[in-house]
Design a binder for these strands. Structure first.
Length: 582
DNA sequence: AAAAAAG
């Protein structure tokens, strides 16, 4: 396959600033050529890696969502091109390898060696199935069962291990068990694990371990996130983990954008960078570039399916620009998300080196720690009534309320702000200062009800969100999975209520299927609704049903009621709130 | 529709 064709695929038709990135593009081509040569010399990986493009069937099979007819298809079924690890693909732990090499190679001993191998393999298989770890690819290292093993096998910094313990983290989650050893072996991967199952740590630990110690060569690891809030959360996680180790972890904020502090004159005393894509690009496109990513060894794409979103103003083009800027010869890439589209899967299969894909449980499913409920509210007005009812009946804060647009977020906020509860709102039209304040207050428990757009749908880890309310119906099953994933995290219990009206009927079936698959009851008729055409579905994702404005206050009252009334209102404490509501 | 760079 022509390397430049791959390069074009990466951009999905996007236009690159070839003048600026021309040099990188050439290097990129060379790199791809190198990979292609490697592959052609190895017949096995040639099959796995550059196999013929999957047939249409295989492509649409990989997300259980696209054809949600309730099929319980194993996620492996669509991965025809990737070899299963069952059998002889497992690598050996170094200790066992040693033992075996010391054995005399007589017939009898050979037999016992075979048995030993077999037993080891059985053990590994058992661990994987116990934790619902599904893995596809060649030479996949064994999962680790404790953080201590990371120290003995992969030289995890003892201080990092201590930091883990201090944070109350005692043993790895399934995604961590498998993804960490893979990244430690410098394997490129596509990892798919449920919301709140520890993906952030799964890539942060290997980054810290891989870099070993601070160096002055510029950034060696980059993490990309779709929102600033998620970037800053990952940044803080890295800071916490690397405390006392001396790594220079950075996030591109407004100040660093203005200062261009990573420019050519910098002393390159940086190790890890966390950012949203556009900020990176902003720095890369300066003349001279205010950021150099040529020393990057690890590029982590968090919420990868989101960042692969296409379209003229979508993320995909930005991501491609970042990929090209990471021009070093040994750059490795890892993709993480709770959901995975066929798009991402195929791209990874074609472009990553000897890809391993890791899935925890079934792909694209909601966590079973969330009690999910669909609530018919009749009309738009019914939503507000039902919302007030929830508040009146009493609920345990904090609660997250998702709406479909910024305008509706504003409207709902104005409806609830005088109810005597601590409510706030967050969306991309608020200033960064406001956004930061809101997130901090919500984390501190000062806000009980937070109204938000899709801004907070992905990756954000608020401890102890008790209720997610989908005030507006989610635009897709994927969106639904991420929204309700803000609760029920790390094994805790959570609850999600989703309002729906007659207008939401087209997407009702697909969301009902997600709920059913997670083990929550749904009325049979919903599953029985006729499947909508995928064209219609796509249109709904882009243009959700038009909804009337959220407003109950008669106009003549709205003018009299100013902000003054809100200001004079006696503030209510958290205890008061609980009393009001019970 | 939202998000992502400033303003």
């Amino acid at each position: 396959m022509d390397a430049f064709e791959l390069f074009r695929k990466l951009g999905a038709g996007a236009k690159f600033d070839l003048k600026r990135f021309g040099q990188d593009a050439v290097r990129f081509k060379v790199q791809l050529k190198h990979v292609a040569d490697d592959v052609s010399s190895d017949p096995l990986s040639a099959i796995d890696y550059f196999g013929p493009a999957p047939a249409n069937g295989a492509q649409s099979k990989t997300t259980g969502l696209e054809d949600e007819g309730g099929e319980e298809s194993e996620e492996g079924s669509g991965d025809g091109k990737l070899k299963d690890t069952g059998g002889n693909c497992i690598s050996w732990t170094s200790s066992l390898e040693g033992k075996i090499q010391n054995l005399p190679s007589e017939g009898k001993e050979k037999n016992s060696l075979k048995r030993l191998k077999h037993l080891h393999q059985e053990k590994v298989n058992r661990i994987r199935s116990q934790h619902r770890i599904n893995v596809h690819g060649c030479d996949v290292p064994d999962p680790v069962c404790t953080f201590e093993e990371l120290q003995s096998e992969y030289h995890l910094n003892p201080r990092v291990l201590q930091n883990l313990r201090d944070a109350g983290l005692n043993s790895p989650t399934p995604i961590q068990m498998q993804a960490i050893p893979l990244m430690m072996h410098s394997r490129e991967l596509l990892a798919c694990a449920p919301t709140g199952s520890g993906k952030t740590l799964a890539f942060c630990l290997p980054l810290l371990t891989h870099l070993q110690q601070p160096a002055n060569r510029g950034f060696r690891a980059v993490v990309i996130s779709p929102t600033r809030e998620l970037a800053s959360q990952t940044y803080r996680e890295l800071l916490r983990l690397s405390e006392g180790v001396g790594f220079r972890v950075h996030i591109i904020d407004k100040a660093s954008l203005a200062a261009k502090k990573y420019g050519p004159q910098s002393n390159k005393k940086y190790d890890i960078l966390v950012s949203t894509p556009n900020r990176l690009i902003f720095l890369l496109k300066q003349d001279p570039p205010a950021l150099n990513l040529s020393s990057v060894e690890w590029l982590v794409v968090d919420e990868s399916d989101k960042l692969f979103e296409d379209g003229k103003t979508g993320f995909r083009e930005q991501l491609a620009t970042v990929f090209l800027a990471c021009s070093g010869s040994k750059v490795r890439r890892a993709f993480f998300s709770a959901t995975c589209t066929p798009d991402v899967e195929q791209w990874c299969r074609l472009n990553l080196d000897n890809l391993v894909s890791v899935n925890i449980g079934h792909r694209n499913t909601a966590v079973d720690t969330v009690e999910q409920e669909l609530l018919f509210v009749g009309t738009e007005n019914g939503k507000l009534v039902a919302m007030r009812d929830i508040i009146k009946k009493g609920f345990l804060p904090p609660m997250l309320v998702f709406v479909q647009s910024i305008e509706r977020a504003r409207e709902l906020f104005h409806e609830l702000v005088y109810e005597g509860i601590n409510v706030d709102v967050i969306h991309a039209d608020r200033t960064q200062q406001q956004r930061d304040n809101v997130v901090n207050s919500f984390r501190a428990g000062k806000i009980w009800v937070l109204i938000c757009t899709a801004l907070l749908a992905r990756g954000i880890d608020f401890k102890g969100v008790n209720l997610v309310l989908n005030y507006d119906f989610p635009t897709s099953a994927v969106e639904y999975i991420h929204r309700i994933g803000r609760t029920g995290r790390a094994g805790h219990q959570g609850k999600a209520i989703t309002f729906f009206t007659e207008n939401d009927k087209p997407l009702l079936r697909s969301i009902a299927n997600v709920i059913k698959q997670a083990g929550c009851p749904v009325p049979d008729y919903m599953i029985g609704i006729k499947k909508i055409h995928s064209k219609v579905k796509r249109r709904l994702e882009k243009k959700p049903p038009k909804r009337s404005t959220i407003c109950t206050t008669p106009r003549f009252l709205m003018k009299k009621k100013g902000k003054a009334q809100g200001r004079n209102k006696k503030s209510v404490s958290h205890c008061d709130f609980l009393r009001i509501c019970t």
